[in-house]
Simulated scan of single mutants.
Amino acid sequence: MPRVAVIPGDGIGLEVMREAVRVLEAVESRFSPGCELVHWDLGADRFLRDGITITDEEFASLSNDHDAILLGALGDPRVPGNQHARDILLGLRFRLDLYVNYRPAVLLDPALSPLKAPGDIRLDIFRENTEGVYVNLGGTFKEGTDRETAIQEDLNTFTGVERICRAAFEHAVKRGRSRVTLVDKANAMPAAGRLWRRVFALVASDFPDIDTDAMYVDAMAMDLVRRPTRYEVIVTGNLFGDILSDLAAELVGGLGAAASANVHPGRHALFEPVHGSAPDIAGQGVANPLGAIASAALMLDHLGHAEAAQAVEEAVVAAVDGGVRTADMGGDRSTEQVGTWIADRVLSGG
Rank of each mutant, 00 (worst) to 15 (best):
P2G: 10
R3M: 06
V4G: 01
G9K: 00
D10Y: 06
R18F: 07
A20I: 01
V21R: 00
V21E: 05
V23G: 00
E25K: 14
V27G: 02
E28F: 09
S29V: 11
S29K: 15
R30W: 04
F31R: 05
L37K: 03
G43Y: 02
L48W: 10
R49D: 13
D50H: 12
I52Y: 11
T55R: 05
E57Y: 08
E57M: 13
A60I: 10
S63N: 13
D65V: 10
H66S: 09
D67R: 03
A68Q: 04
I69T: 02
G75E: 07
G75P: 02
P77C: 13
P80M: 11
N82Y: 00
Q83E: 13
H84N: 11
H84G: 07
R86G: 08
D87H: 15
L89C: 08
L89R: 03
G91S: 14
G91I: 06
F94L: 14
L96Q: 08
L98G: 05
L98S: 00
R103Y: 02
L108M: 11
K116W: 01
P118S: 06
G119V: 06
D120C: 08
L123T: 05
D124W: 05
E128R: 00
E128K: 02
N129C: 05
E131V: 08
E131S: 04
L137K: 12
T145Q: 12
D154M: 12
L155Y: 11
N156R: 09
N156T: 08
T157Q: 03
F158N: 13
E162D: 14
I164S: 00
I164K: 01
R166M: 06
E170M: 10
E170I: 04
E170Y: 03
H171Y: 15
A172P: 02
V173L: 14
K174Q: 11
A186T: 10
A188R: 11
A191M: 12
G193Q: 01
R194S: 13
R194E: 14
L195F: 04
L195E: 02
R197E: 10
R197V: 02
F200L: 07
A201M: 12
L202Y: 15
V203S: 09
A204Y: 08
S205H: 13
D209K: 15
I210A: 05
A214D: 11
M220C: 10
M222G: 05
V225C: 12
E232N: 09
T236G: 01
L239S: 01
D242S: 11
I243F: 10
A248D: 02
A248F: 03
A248H: 03
L251S: 02
G253I: 04
G254R: 03
A257N: 02
A257L: 15
A261W: 04
P265C: 09
R267S: 14
A269V: 04
A269F: 00
G276Q: 05
D280Y: 07
D280P: 00
G283W: 07
G283I: 04
Q284C: 09
G285T: 01
N288H: 08
N288S: 12
L290A: 04
A292C: 09
A294Y: 07
A294Q: 12
A297H: 00
L298C: 06
M299S: 05
D301N: 14
D301K: 14
A309N: 03
A311R: 01
D321N: 15
R325W: 03
T326V: 05
A327I: 13
D328W: 06
G330Y: 11
G330K: 12
T335D: 03
T335I: 07
V338R: 02
D344T: 09
R345C: 14
S348M: 08
S348C: 04
